[in-house]
Amino acid sequence: MTEKRAVPPSGFFMNAERAGRGMRMSLGAVVAVSELSPEKITLVSHGGRIRVSGTGLRLSVFEGRGVEIVGEISEVGFAYAKN
């Protein structure tokens, strides 16, 4: 009997950990980036928007629509809305 796991249909995930003086935040299934600056990054996913603010933010893009944000993250906000 196989266990059924609850996987979001969009493939969205988010993980955050400490990295140096700041944090490293990884996100999956990012559709687009609507705002990009060292102080503020706004990501668009299937379910809504993710707003990350802080200082010295840097963004890396990976295959499979993965995104990694590194920097001194001070606040992460979520907004539910269809794209």
Partner: peptide
């Protein structure tokens, strides 16, 4: 800068966008 990142996302290219864009 967002357009550059969106293009990287669409094409599936691994790249890091630095603070000087």
């Amino acid at each position: 800068a967002p357009s550059l990142v969106n293009a990287l996302l669409r094409l599936g290219i691994n790249a890091s966008v630095k603070r000087d864009f």
